[in-house]
Simulated scan of single mutants.
Amino acid sequence: MNLAQPSADIELRLWRQFLAVAETLHFGRAAAQLHMTQPPLTQAIQQLERRLGVPLFERTRRSVVLTPAGAAIVEPARQLLAQAAALAVQARSAASGETGRIRLGFVSTVGFGPLPGWLRAFREAHPGIAVELREATGDVQYEAFAQRELDAGFVLHAPSIEPPPPLQRLSLGVEPLLLAVPDAGPQRRSTAQWLREPLVIFPRSIAPSLYDAVLAFYHRHGVTPAIAQEAIQMQTIVNLVSAGLGVALVPRAMQQLQRPGITYRALPAGLADGAPRAETSLVWLPDAAAAVRRFVEFVRAQGLRGA
């Protein structure tokens, strides 16, 4: 047999025809299974052998036998056809949001709040969707969105602040900030005394709207805060307060983080009016995959049940 150089670009049709002959060892019966006549099947097998560069069958008038090369590729051919058949199912599952991957960013305050429970419930409801978590501040998340490295994310900001376009937003609620104070030192203080305590706060770059809301609150009371220390993560801020470096205004979810030497309390009555508030939002890209949209609707439902 004059065999050409092998080619990897072989249609599934040829593998299906090869497998039919390999399993029946009879060209006539294989042709009947494939709903075709025998001559085109014989030509197809010859074409496959030319493209592979090896004979696959030994043929006589009375028998058809697989060559060693033919026998070696029967099982791989079965696997190839099974994988090809599964592609359509996988594509439909991904298109409907039943399977897929979500690259999810989150700020630490959500991690101390509802996120762990939501992730458990979502995984139970949608086991075919993998969620890859990335803890990051809002500014880092927005940069990751711009680089198409995130699909969705939980961010913290001042109320009603929209994310940079083209991101879409689902509000998960607004809450007043609590005062985190060290246990050491007097707890009964006047409004003026609380405002003049050193302030531990996050850098403006990570949440500009919330940082500005905190400083505007101080300015409304005629005080320029003495910033003792800046820290990126809320848990670090809480730890610095517990060490006595100052006080901090933190989201209510941080009450879950208990540390020796710290107390969370509502702002004193004299400070409560016009106190800064924080809003948590889920943001995502408008062209997100179906799995991401399914997650958004799941979170939306959780928020409605919690309202």
Results as ranks from 00 to 15, higher is better:
Pro76Lys: 15
Ile102Val: 03
Pro6Glu: 01
Leu115His: 08
Thr280Trp: 08
Thr99Val: 15
Ala32Leu: 12
Glu149Arg: 15
Leu150Tyr: 11
Ala243Asn: 07
Ala152Val: 06
Ile227Ala: 08
Ala69Lys: 05
Arg123Val: 00
Thr67Asn: 03
Pro127Gly: 04
Ala8Pro: 06
Phe298Arg: 08
Glu75Phe: 10
Ser190Ala: 05
Asp287Glu: 11
Val155Tyr: 15
Val74Thr: 08
Leu119Ser: 08
Gln141Met: 15
Ala30Gln: 02
Pro40Ala: 06
Pro225Gln: 00
Glu75Thr: 12
Leu133Trp: 04
Leu115Ile: 10
Leu48Gly: 01
Thr109Gly: 07
Val21Gln: 06
Thr24Phe: 06
Val74Lys: 02
Val65His: 12
Val110Gly: 00
Gln33Asn: 11
Glu135Ala: 14
Arg259Thr: 07
Leu215Arg: 04
Ala72Arg: 11
Gln33Phe: 01
Arg29Val: 13
Trp118Ile: 00
Glu132His: 13
Ser96Trp: 06
Arg101Pro: 00
Pro268Lys: 07
Ser190Phe: 05
Ser7Gly: 05
Tyr142Cys: 09
Gly100Ala: 07
Leu285Ala: 12
Gln168Asn: 10
His26Ser: 14
Trp194Ser: 08
Phe18His: 06
Leu119Met: 11
Pro286Phe: 03
Ala253Phe: 11
Leu210Thr: 01
Pro286Asp: 08
Ala44Arg: 02
Arg265His: 05
Arg123Cys: 01
Leu34Arg: 02
Pro225Arg: 08
Thr137Tyr: 09
Gly128Tyr: 09
Arg101Thr: 13
Leu87Lys: 10
Thr109Val: 14
Pro276Met: 02
Pro39Val: 08
Val155Met: 11
Gln47Ile: 02
Ala288Arg: 00
Leu172Tyr: 03
Arg120Asp: 10
Glu49Cys: 04
Pro159Trp: 02
Gln187Met: 03
Asp287Pro: 10
Leu14Pro: 03
Thr224Pro: 03
Ala289Asp: 13
Glu197Asn: 14
Leu282Glu: 00
Leu56Val: 01
Leu179Val: 09
Glu75Ala: 14
Leu104Lys: 05
Val74Ser: 01
Asp212Lys: 04
Thr263Gln: 13
Phe106Thr: 12
Ile102Cys: 05
Gln17Tyr: 03
Ile227Cys: 01
Ala91Cys: 07
Arg259Tyr: 07
Arg29Ala: 14
Glu132Asp: 12
Ala144Thr: 02
Pro251Arg: 03
Gly261Ile: 06
Ala158Cys: 02
Met36Gln: 15
Ser96Phe: 05
Ala91Gln: 15
His219Ala: 14
Met234Thr: 12
Met36Leu: 14
Arg220Glu: 06
Ala125Asn: 07
Gly270Ile: 03
Thr280Met: 15
Thr280Gln: 13
Ser93Cys: 10
Val214Thr: 03
Arg189Asn: 06
Glu98Leu: 12
Glu135Asn: 12
Thr280Pro: 00
Val65Ala: 11
Pro251Ser: 11
Tyr218Cys: 01
Ile161Leu: 12
Ala4Leu: 14
